[in-house]
Amino acid sequence: MAGSDLVMHDNEFQKIDEELQRLHQQANASVVFLVDKNGQLIASAGDTHNIDTTSLASLTAGNIAATGGIARLLGEKEFTILFHEGEKDNIHISLIGQRVILVVIFDQRSSLGLVRLRVKKTAEALAKIFDEIASKAEKEKVEGGKTAESPFAEISDEDIDNLFK
């Protein structure tokens, strides 16, 4: 398969979660999300129970993909920041290390300037974490080792059939 799958373990997830919680507080944001470029939600911070996070993740990735398409048509590599302003809520979307998308939703209690400033810091920290994940995955690939607790090791036809009952 082209590209590599994203495999995330507890300690990496916790690091990411900490970064998002910090950003959520420091930027005075309503909600903060991290989404992979294929539209899968990785983590979130803030009050998400009124938001359809799965749909939001998929649409954000679609948005970034479409904007990336436009960028290439114009000879740009990528537009790394998108900002949508609404009547009450605003959304700040930024691409981190060509890999993941950081989404910040905020209202009048915060400001675009503050969000941009805080996002920049968080982006650096997240880029580092994802570099670690990538190099770890690379290492595991070279060693050819399968994770001990892999859910796939003993997966059977029956398991799969059960999903569709």
């Binding site: 398969m1 495999v7 995330m8 507890d10 990496e12 997830f13 899968q40 990785i42």
Partner: peptide, 15 residues
């Protein structure tokens, strides 16, 4: 590209 999350014990795939 699947996303396997050991923390939340989820596997996400795209079709």
């Amino acid at each position: 590209m699947s996303f396997i999350n050991y923390s939340s014990r989820e596997i996400n795939c795209k079709i």
